[in-house]
Design a protein around this nucleic acid. Structure first.
Lengths: 225, 225
DNA sequence: TTGCGATTGTGAAGGAATTCACAATCGTAA
DNA sequence: TTACGATTGTGAATTCCTTCACAATCGCAA
């Protein structure tokens, strides 16, 4: 393929799978593999080889026929596509249960998401040290987001106040928000909002277990009822 | 529609959307709405009314033409479909950052997932009290999972030990596992394993932001490159 | 009791994502 | 220098998912 000149639609699932490939490639790199085939990549992620090749083909041709893909090189390329090689300045808003756990979550840093500022409204927390970062007063949200060149905000506050805070965040010029609060937030069109709903997968398990009691299902994509 | 006699394939997305409907219905119930139309439900979740109706139609016909769906009744029905009304006994394995945050996560209980036991291998944590639950020694994993009739396990341990622990969990007869460790675990066919990958949505944001700099995209499903 | 606006439930159509299938092409070994 | 097994990249075929479009039918008002 020539180059990524033409505009193509990339599906959400493809992007999510790139994340998976990236993670496996990191592991393969540590295990000193030089190359990897679409077959092996697929096996590790429970996908088909064709799926892997198709996903990658949207962005270019990274492999060598007969050999496979160069592990480190492909990892770097996917990192470029996802935009995680460049690194991002991230702020955490809310240092309750979830928020403080995520501040200490190594995986984020490893993927290039650097938490630079933490906000809370609790006077007892403000000024305290969380994993080397001093908690800021949420009343200075807009000012401190700008001062630290924050590009992405992770929101881990109670649902009751989430919308007000999002409005502030948007006003500060932030265009990427990851929301952990269990509600649907409103943002302008130019802002990217993603929701992390941790109950969802538990509920899927619940559904699967409930229905497997009668109709013993294997590992297929869907479920019989 | 008659009844759910025939076996139909239900897609993963449909189940995930049921979770969304359930959450919105809980909110509508609190706001004292008696009925809700597919149009309104769709608006709140940024879906199409047809999608909402089709999803529900897989499981029965819950609405009234001209009126919409009865909020509380539909919520109960979806709860039944997802299997969350009956409640589940859940164990948390690993009380590090993520694990201890999730133990205190109210949303799980609210959806019928009751954390009954907590395990860790750290002698300093074993015996200590986490949100009213005494941390058990992971060496008693199999015994205590059985003793407490645990049906679902949430795994929040370092990637390095996750597979060993999963093997134990499977040996204890558990058939539902929610994994937070960043790796792909192997389980037998009869066990349902779901992965929660919190970096994934951040990486999607990264991709979206990176690509929006040039090709200003709106709120469509996919992304141009 | 009839008529009307609103909304569901669902086959059929349309669109999107996945898989198939194979030509192209690599590294390697004789 | 050629022959071969392996593997990619990709149009075409297929499968899966979403949206359309409309008959069916409800509550309500006159």
């Amino acid at each position: 393929m020539a180059f990524n000149s033409g505009k193509k639609k990339i599906s959400e699932s493809t992007i999510h799978r790139l994340s998976l490939y990236y993670r496996v490639l990191s592991i393969l790199e540590k295990e000193n593999h030089q190359t990897v085939s679409s077959k092996e990549l697929a096996r590790r992620e429970k996908l088909t080889p064709a799926q892997v090749r198709k996903d990658l083909s949207f962005f270019g041709s990274f492999g060598t026929r007969g050999l496979g893909y160069p592990v480190s090189e492909l990892k770097r390329q996917i990192g470029d596509i996802l935009g995680i090689n460049r690194g991002w300045n991230v702020a955490m808003v809310g240092v309750g249960n979830i928020g403080s756990a995520l501040v200490g979550y190594k995986e984020f840093q490893r993927q290039g998401f650097n938490i630079k500022v933490i906000f809370d409204n609790d006077q007892r927390k403000i000024g305290s040290n969380h994993k080397g970062i001093i908690v800021s007063d949420i009343r200075n949200l807009e000012r401190d987001l700008r001062a630290n060149n924050i590009e992405i905000v992770i929101l881990a506050v109670p649902a009751t106040v989430a919308q007000y805070i999002v409005d502030d965040i948007v006003r500060a010029g932030i265009r990427g928000i990851l929301n952990f609060a269990p509600l649907n937030l409103k943002v302008p069109d130019h802002v990217f909002l993603r929701n992390e709903n941790m109950s969802m997968e538990l509920e899927y398990l619940s559904f699967a277990l409930k229905n497997s009691e009668t109709s013993k299902s294997g590992e297929g994509k869907g479920h019989k009822i």
